[in-house]
């Protein structure tokens, strides 16, 4: 695998705090263009937060995040909205607009951002729905769909404007094996067919690693590992090892920090 791919997103020395809690302390990573990058790590390490930082929904305390060379955190509102047209994001719950039909949901970004006429919009929407295999569901309401189908509709909506990058926030959570297989295939197909830069946040480790070209592991407020899945498997780092093998105790403690039990009970 060629390692020299131009980065699409560069994250440099980012510090981020939520209230008093430190989320990142000098986090640096790159997301290569046109590849599938997986962001993995224990729960509660703020993997979703990283996506929100890239999307400009949150601002870091210090550090720099560049998307295609543009610093996100310095952007004004309007410029940020322009940049976001080049990114799609698939939220954990799908986040379909409940009061709109499947068709209107996918048509929504097109209606807002383009001046395409009615027929053209219909054509594009049907094409996008075809890509996720749900053209037959075009007239249903989101509430009539299963969770996995909602996510696929949301995916069709995320790619409606032909973005250059798409970010998946926990796309595999709560899926049965078939639904999971469908989503895995979709992520891979979209990446290959459209050359989309893809970022997958997940803690379904094996599934994610099976399609990823690049892995970023976050633990203890910083990047614990960055490289190819093969390198990760071979890594001797105790933290990576603990995570890969799912051991309850190791560098990531089983116990929440507390004074020794002898003090607490005496």
């Amino acid at each position: 695998m060629p390692d020299v791919v131009a980065p699409f997103v560069e994250i440099e020395n980012v510090v981020f705090r939520r209230d008093e809690r430190v989320i990142y302390e000098g986090l640096s990573a790159t997301i290569p263009r046109g590849r599938i990058s997986a962001i993995v790590g224990p729960s509660g390490t703020g993997k979703t937060t990283l996506l929100r930082l890239i999307g400009g929904q949150l601002r870091p305390e210090s550090g720099d995040i560049r998307v295609d060379g543009i610093s996100v955190q310095g952007l004004k509102r309007d410029a940020l909205f322009t940049l976001r047209k080049r990114m799609g994001m698939l939220f954990q719950s799908g986040a379909l607009f409940a009061e709109l039909s499947v068709f209107e949901n996918v048509a929504f970004p097109l209606r807002v951002h383009t001046t395409l006429d009615h027929d053209l919009i219909r054509l594009v929407v049907l094409m996008k729905l075809e890509a996720v295999g749900l053209r037959g569901a075009v007239d249903l309401m989101p509430a009539e769909l299963s969770g996995g189908m909602q996510r696929r509709v949301a995916l069709a909506r995320a790619i409606a404007l032909d973005p250059e990058m798409i970010m998946y926030d926990e796309p595999f959570v709560g899926q049965d094996p078939i639904g999971l297989g469908v989503l895995l295939t979709l992520v891979k197909q979209l990446n290959q067919a459209l050359g989309l830069t893809s970022v997958v946040v997940s803690h379904d480790l094996q599934e994610t690693l099976s399609i990823a070209d690049h892995v970023i592991m976050i633990a203890n407020n910083r990047v614990a590992f960055e490289g190819s899945p093969a390198d990760m498997q071979a890594s001797a780092d105790p933290l990576v090892e603990q995570f890969l093998n799912g051991r309850p105790d190791g560098p990531v403690r089983f116990h929440y920090p507390a004074p020794p039990i002898s003090e607490a009970v005496s």
């Binding site: 929100r52 999307g55 929904q57 509102r77 909205f81 322009t82 976001r84 047209k85 990114m87 799609g88 994001m89 939220f91 954990q92 719950s93 986040a95 379909l96 607009f97 409940a98 929504f108 970004p109 807002v112 951002h113 949301a154 909506r157 404007l161």
Partner: peptide, 18 residues
């Protein structure tokens, strides 16, 4: 509140709509 909880507001933002 429900739109916020189901990430519809965040989703709007990411589509580039205020």
């Amino acid at each position: 509140g429900l739109m916020k909880a189901t990430e519809q507001l965040a989703s709007l933002e990411m589509i580039g709509v205020d």
